[in-house]
Each structure stands twice: as C-alpha cells, then as structure tokens.
Design a binder for these strands. Structure first.
Lengths: 137, 137, 137, 137
DNA sequence: GTGGTCTAGACCACG
DNA sequence: GTGGTCTAGACCACT
C-alpha cells in the first residue's frame, strides 16, 4: 500500500499516516495479519522521522487496529478487535459541525448523503470476502 | 443563542465557538442581519479570553458567515454569500477518514447514513421559513 | 502528591509515573478535576525528560484517566470515564502468572488473598466521599 | 505439557515460556524430577528461536525452579528449593499497580478477590497429592 | 533486524 | 506558559 504524506498539510503527519492506514483497512487493501513496514523503513520511505511514524503506529495499536507480532513486526489486527460499540457517539460530535457547515455552504441533505454514499462505494471496492479471513497468529 | 464551551474538549475554543455559530446559522437560530454580541461581551459572557473570541469571529468573517456592519457590529451574512460550490471537495477530505474509521469500528453504511439523517433532522428543527427573510441592509 | 521515580528500576519511567498517578487516583489523593503538574514542571521536578513525562501523560489520557483542560492543563477525569467493563479479562492474564509463581514460592491462597486485602486497605485510606465530588468543567 | 506461545502478545516469548512452566509446576502438571524437553527440542516444537528457550530456561534455573541433571538434562527442582520467604515483598510491588488500576476501572475489592480465587481454583485442579511425591535424586 | 525507551532541542497553536 | 508535534541520536531488549 502506498502512503502519501502532505508535509504542507495542517493535519499532523502521524494523523495523516494513521488515517491512511485506517482507510487501507477499511477498503480491504490491508488485511488482518498483513504486516506493515517497519517504523524505520516507512520513515525513510516517506522521508519523515522514525518517531513520527512510531507515534502513528502507537496510536493505531492502542486503538486496536494493529498488533505487534514478535516476528512479523507490526501487523493488522482482527477486524473484531477494532470494533467499538460506543463509537457512534463520538462520531456524531465530529459529523455535526460538518453537516452544519454543509448546510450553510448550500448543500442539501441529499447532496450530503450522496457524497457519503460515494465515499462508501469508493472504500468498499477492495472489500471482497473480508469475513473469510481468519488469520492464524 | 446560547454558546456552550467545553474547556476539556480537545477542540480549540475558537473552533467550538465558530462551530456553534455556524450551527446556529444552519438551524436558523441566527438569521441574516442578526447581530452577534461584541467580542468583549461574548468573551466575558462565556468566560474566555477576548482574543479567542476575536479569532473565532475573524474566521467566520473570512469564510463569509458574517459581515462587519458599521453600526451593528458583527452581523450574520446573507445565506447566499456563504455558499461555496467547491465546498464538497473539501468536505470529502474531512468525511473520508470518518467513514473509514466507522467501517473499521463496525458501523454499516446505513448505520452511518442514519446517523447523518438524524443530525440533519436535529438541525432542521429551527429552520422555518428561512427563505422568507431577505433582509435589506 | 509526591512522585517518586526509580531510575535504576527495570520498569520504564513513564510506566512508573503512570502507575503512581493511577495509584493516586485509586487512593483518592488525586481527585477528579484536580490538576497535575505541567509536563515541563514535573519533568524538571523529578529530573527526567519532558517527553518521558509526556508519554506517561499521553497514555493516562488515552486510557481515560485524565483530560486536557484548556486553562488548567492536565486534570483528573471523572471516575466514570475510567471504567472499563472488559478490564477483568485483561486483569486475569496479568494476575495468573503472579499467582502461579506465588504458589511455587510457598504462599498459600489465604497468604495471597490477605496480601491483596492489605493492599486494598492501604489504598482505600484516602477514599472518603469520592462520590460526592461532581466536578464542574 | 503443552506450551502455547502467543507471538502477538506484548509479553516477551521467553517470559511466556517461563510463566507457563511455572504455571505447570504450580498446577502439578510438572512434578519434581520431571524433565523438560531439551532447548533444541522445545525450540523446534513451538517454532521459536533456540536462544529464546535458552533464556527462559536460564531464568527458571536461577530462580530455583529447575536444576541441571547430568543425565536427564533440565529437571524440575524440589518444591522446597523454590520457596522464597521474601517473595511476598516483591509480589506486593507487582500487585499494587494492578489493584490501583482495578479500583479505577470500577472493580470492587470482592470482584478482585473473587477473580483471584477463581484463578487459584483453576490452578489447583491438577494438584492432587503433590506432597506425596518426594523424589529421590 | 525489530520495536521500545530516553534524552534533547526546536517550533507551533492555543489561551 | 500550556500541550502538541517534529526532528535527531542513542541505547536496550528481544528474536
């Protein structure tokens, strides 16, 4: 998977990194048990500091997206372990301002929902038989 | 309109302020031509620093939500002037990570869309006859 | 509250720090809404690097023990937000080897349980009326 | 006895190995004078590095759990030789943070003690007549 | 070689 | 002055 960091973005590098990995998991490009590049490798690949990668990886780990496997290094966790039933509450707080802004900017509800649907479609492309995977580790 | 700031939130105060004013506009609680409290007034009302209010107001103005009226001070702009046809592109960048995360956290597409619809419903409550108002200024 | 770090210990400094703060919360020495020293302050007080303190603080935050309050800095969170219903499963994994070892080292079950009770007693000393506290923030 | 290593655990492999052998001794599955598989054997059985097994074995020996027998190789030591009267002090240091954390996570003292009792029960299952065995060596 | 930890110095956003 | 981020260099434990 190709990671693309925008150093000029106002979004912190480690967040961009995290987001792209989460997106990779969501699309199925990154599958459970698949290994991520080492912190040093990835850092040198994208030209950032090791510790910045490490911070992103650390958060992914603490949020259940990844695990440290003794031989493989950082690997994608089971999909089950990422689940969080209380997530939708946190989500609502993040979505609300976007919707309010959208309304002011002239988007209708269906404009907004269609945009979301489009993103879902885009992310679901790689999602074939994710459930089949039952990684041994 | 009541502004409620959460000092323990991870979101910067001036952003919370901005978001609530935008939400007020979206719901129709704040109507075009309506005036906002003065920087000093609001700062003392909600117990935050004047510069923080100023920063929030500054961004609202530069994004077209408000205007400076010579006599009235800061007022809500015409809804037309807030519109931004290129907004949906910026929006997509913000929504994508949320949707990717939602997928990983176990939400389905319809879970997500229903959540959005709920927020729209919630915001639309105050929206009666916004179009009637076409204030002269 | 006095933090005491053993630089010669095999336990990572930021973990020692975390443990002592958690212990402070458990005993009631640190109450909800109480503020912790700033990262820089504490670092210079105990003679370690700012980033080490920051890492400990960061984990406390992500585990729900603390919050960042805009004016006060790092504060103790509500007791409710620290709760974790699935904690006892993780706990069992940590306790089991201790108990197995204890058995080999000649401790009986009641020796072990009495030791635990003693620790509980010790920690509960400061716990008067924790429930009364309903911090405003 | 079956050794099960979790490469995705945060616990070092040699510690997991050690813990399981200690647990085996505690439950009585491993009896005094019983021999452990050779380093090479065990390493290949569970698919880990020989040096890792060696490290675990080394610690077991230095903590009195095992002995080197000229003919049999590594054998389980006499239960008496494992005893350590000063162990409970070390133990307390390890248990305290767990109890403090438990309190914060919402467990009561009896929750915690019941959990411990359950683990004791679980470990004692295999413990029939351990005292009968007083192997000559 | 891997991740984990610690130190150090610097800049920024926020209030 | 606060926490947050990024960079950098170093050592260690584990495998």
């Amino acid at each position: 998977m190709i990671i693309k960091i925008d150093l000029a973005s106002e979004i912190a590098i480690y967040i961009q990194l995290k987001n792209q990995i989460i997106e990779g998991i969501a699309t199925g490009q990154l599958r459970p048990d698949e290994q991520l590049p080492s912190v040093r490798q990835l850092a040198s690949d994208i030209g950032i500091n090791m510790h910045t990668v490490n911070k992103g990886y650390g958060q992914l780990k603490s949020e259940g997206y990844t695990l440290i496997h003794k031989r493989k290094g950082v690997i994608i966790n089971n999909l089950e372990d990422m689940k969080d039933p209380s997530y939708s509450e946190k989500l609502e707080i993040n979505i609300k301002p976007l919707i309010a802004e959208s309304i002011c900017k002239g988007l209708t509800e269906s404009d907004y929902l269609n945009l979301c649907k489009g993103i879902f479609k885009q992310l679901k492309k790689g999602e074939i038989n994710k459930s089949e995977l039952n990684p041994n580790r």
